[in-house]
């Protein structure tokens, strides 16, 4: 990785990565990637997030669904672990709770492939700093 030597370098990286992320989020292109984040803090892993993540990676691969599966930290819903967040191209992210491999399969078959919602959605119940205006 190149060293960041100035503030401009840092801004450039930010713009680059942000641009890539936006591209993923907003393009209508059907080949666009589905993004899945798996909450992998200690609590998530303890309730089986790793198995779910492995399953998602292999099952999406098997079905040739272009997707990026990444790990992330704790989403805060300890009572509903494992939790995952699915973002389909051009759509708002949706968080699902109580995701075991069976649920993961259902999410792929129904939500990712046909857009049909499934049980276990966890509604957003907090404000982000970006939304907080004084």
């Amino acid at each position: 990785m190149n060293k960041i030597k100035s503030l401009d370098d840092l801004r450039k990286i930010k713009a680059d990565v942000e641009g890539k992320m936006k591209l993923r989020e907003h393009s209508e292109n059907a080949e666009n990637l589905v993004q899945i984040k798996v909450a992998m803090a200690t609590c998530g892993i303890a309730s089986g997030a790793k198995t779910v993540m492995d399953f998602l990676v292999s099952d999406l691969d098997k079905r040739n669904i272009p997707a990026v599966v990444t790990q992330t930290g704790c989403m805060g819903y300890c009572y509903a672990e494992p939790t995952i967040e699915v973002t389909k191209p051009g759509e708002e992210p949706i968080v699902f709770g109580y995701v075991d491999t069976k649920k993961a399969e259902e999410i792929i078959t129904k939500y990712i492939l046909t857009g049909e919602l499934v049980d276990g959605i966890i509604p957003v119940n907090y404000e982000k700093i970006e939304d907080k205006k004084n």
Binding site: M21, K37, G73, G76, N125, Y126, K132
Partner: peptide
């Protein structure tokens, strides 16, 4: 929405093992 996430702003959003996502 009673919650406001400042300290937890990135928890559950970014991949903690990727500095670029934090920079973004």
């Amino acid at each position: 929405r009673k919650q406001l996430r400042i300290a937890l702003r990135n928890c559950g959003f970014i991949n903690p093992e990727n500095i670029n996502e934090y920079i973004a």
